[in-house]
Structures are given as structure tokens and as C-alpha cells.
């Protein structure tokens, strides 16, 4: 009993719980643990997964970004309209990444340089960017004219769709950045104690701007992949994505108070959200219940995290 307790409340407790939950779902839900369903599951979490990596950095540095959903939609629009106008998919994708970079940098400058509260600043950009996406398309979905644009999401490498590869590479890259690079340590230090970090000679403002700029580019990538998968630029795409992404990070043990983050947790957080949705779909549970379940999972995860940090302090 004591051993079990230590395992669950330990460093890798979340991973252990995830493996147990995964095994249970695989045994109990028919058609869950099949190659097709697994690939479908992974594809369904691509958008959340890609943005979660950069959101992890953002939360770890004690910041917050609500504008990711709008930015994904805006970048998707930019990709589709850009490819249609120029006839070049590459230019379209470039435009989408640039759009993401601009939104992210503006967020970063407003928050870090002008010292506007991140919650308010990104609440503003959430609406501004969504507005831009709607204005650009006059509120309608924009169809893709370039056949090359579809193929982005349809490409399969070693039996796994390209978007899934992109997600895996992004998450691995963020894990490396967080744990092994000076930038990643600066991010955690800023979140852990901004004043001490500034006094230690780290350019805190620049670090924070970089985090938001990277976040913007990741939204750009996610936007391109999403637009390619749904074969159109949808101004209303990815609504509410910010909540899913932040949920996934918090599920994965990223502290909203900053200074604490692990990529393994974020991966597990993303997968838990994906599995919950997938399993309920397979069981034909009405979509409305999914909100309920997702909320409960989040609440439980946070309470578990609370227990864990208290156990840590006692030892």
C-alpha cells in the first residue's frame, strides 16, 4: 500500500497512472487498441500537441497565452489564401508561419516590454486575431485551390501520417530545449523567480518575448496542418483550443505559478485528453458528456498534483 502510494505520488506518478488508464481502456473499450484507431487518436491530438510544447514554456515562465486558438485559425487562413493567391504552397506556408510569428511577437512585446498582464493582453489578441481571420475571409470558409496543399496532411511516412511526425518532432524538440539548453533553463528560472533571474544577468524581457514568438510560430505550424486536414481555411477553426492546451499542460504537471514543467507530463496530458475523447466516441457517448468528463479529469489531475507536492514537502 505504502509502496503504491509512493509510486503514484512520485516523480513519474502521472506516467504510471497513464499507463494503467491506457491498459484499462484498451481492455474494456472494443476497437480501441487497433492500429487504425491509434493513428486516428494521434491525428486528433496533433493541433493540441504541437501547441502544448510551446505553451509549456509559456506557463513555465509564469506567463499565459489565450490567443493560440485564434492564431491557429488565422495562420490557417493565411496559408490557404496565400497559396491560392500566389499559386505556391511554400509561399502560403511561409506566410502562415510569418503570421504566427507576428502575432506571437506582438503578444510578447506587449506583455514583457509594455508590462501588460498576460491574461488581459492575450485575451485582447484572441479577439483581434479572430476578428482579422473573419474579416479576411468575410466570415466564410475559404476552399483550397492548390492540390499540393492537401498532400501536406495526407503524406504518410513509415506508415504514420506526416502531421503526427511533426507533432512528435516538435514535442521532442521542446523537451530538449527545456532540459538541455540555456534558453530552456532561462525559461524555468524566469518562472521560478523573475527578480532573481534578472539580477543574475538574464535578459528576462527578451526571454519572454522569444517564448511568445516561438508560441506564435508553433500556432502557425498547427494552423497549416489543420487547414490541410480540413482542406479549407476556416475562420472559426480551433475555437477553445487555448483551454484544451492549457488543460493538457496542467494535467501534465506544469505549474501555473511557473518554474515547474516536464515534457513527459505534457505528452501524457495531451494523450489523456485524446484518449478520453476517443474512448467516448467509440462507446457512442454523446459529445456533450465529453465536456463533463474532461472537466472532471482536469480537476482530479490538479488535486493529485496538490497531493504530490504536499508529499514532496513532507519528505
Amino acid at each position: 500500500m505504502n509502496h503504491l502510494r509512493r509510486l503514484i505520488l512520485g516523480e513519474q506518478g502521472l506516467v504510471v497512472l497513464f499507463v494503467v488508464a491506457f491498459a484499462a481502456v484498451a481492455l474494456l473499450v472494443p476497437n480501441f487498441f487497433t492500429e487504425r484507431n491509434m493513428l486516428g487518436l494521434l491525428q486528433s491530438v496533433v493541433t493540441i500537441g504541437i501547441v502544448s510544447g510551446s505553451m509549456m514554456l509559456c506557463l513555465a515562465s509564469r506567463d499565459f497565452d489565450l490567443s493560440v486558438g485564434s492564431t491557429v485559425a488565422f495562420a490557417g487562413m493565411a496559408a490557404v489564401m496565400g497559396s491560392n493567391m500566389t499559386g505556391s504552397v511554400t509561399l502560403g506556408v511561409g506566410l502562415a508561419l510569418l503570421a504566427g510569428l507576428v502575432v506571437g511577437t506582438v503578444n510578447g512585446v506587449v506583455i514583457a516590454r509594455l508590462r501588460i498582464n498576460a491574461l488581459i493582453a492575450t485575451l485582447a489578441t484572441l479577439q483581434i486575431v479572430r476578428g482579422l481571420a473573419l474579416i479576411a475571409s468575410n466570415g466564410r470558409a475559404v476552399g483550397v485551390n492548390e492540390p499540393g496543399f492537401y498532400t501536406i496532411a495526407q503524406t504518410v511516412v513509415f506508415g504514420i501520417p506526416a502531421p503526427v511526425w511533426v507533432m512528435v518532432v516538435c514535442l521532442a524538440a521542446f523537451g530538449f530545449v527545456l532540459n538541455r539548453t540555456v534558453f530552456g533553463r532561462n525559461v524555468l528560472a524566469v518562472g521560478g523567480n523573475p527578480d532573481a533571474t534578472r539580477l543574475a544577468g538574464v535578459d528576462v524581457v527578451r526571454t519572454r518575448i522569444w517564448i511568445f514568438a516561438i508560441q506564435g510560430v508553433m500556432c502557425g505550424i498547427a494552423g497549416v496542418l489543420l487547414a490541410s486536414r480540413i482542406t479549407s481555411g476556416q475562420p472559426n477553426a480551433a475555437t477553445g483550443l487555448e483551454l484544451s492546451v492549457i488543460s493538457a499542460c496542467v494535467l501534465g504537471g506544469v505549474s501555473l505559478a511557473g518554474g515547474r514543467a516536464a515534457i513527459s507530463g505534457v505528452v501524457v496530458g495531451v494523450l489523456i485528453l485524446g484518449i478520453a475523447e476517443n474512448a467516448m466516441n467509440l462507446l457512442n457517448i454523446q459529445a456533450f458528456y465529453q465536456y463533463l468528463v474532461r472537466g472532471l479529469i482536469l480537476l482530479l489531475a490538479v488535486m493529485l498534483d496538490n497531493l504530490r507536492s504536499r508529499a514532496l514537502r513532507r519528505s
Binding site: R185, N186, L188, A189, G192, N193, A196, T197, A200, G201, V202, S255, G259, R260
Partner: peptide
């Protein structure tokens, strides 16, 4: 100091 980081990381902060 940054509580969530190791001693070594704190020593070399920045």
C-alpha cells in the same frame, strides 16, 4: 534562489 531548480542550476543561474 529558485526553489524548483537544483543547487547546481542555481549556482550557475544566468
Amino acid at each position: 534562489l529558485i526553489p524548483s531548480m537544483s543547487i547546481a542550476e542555481n549556482l550557475f543561474l544566468g
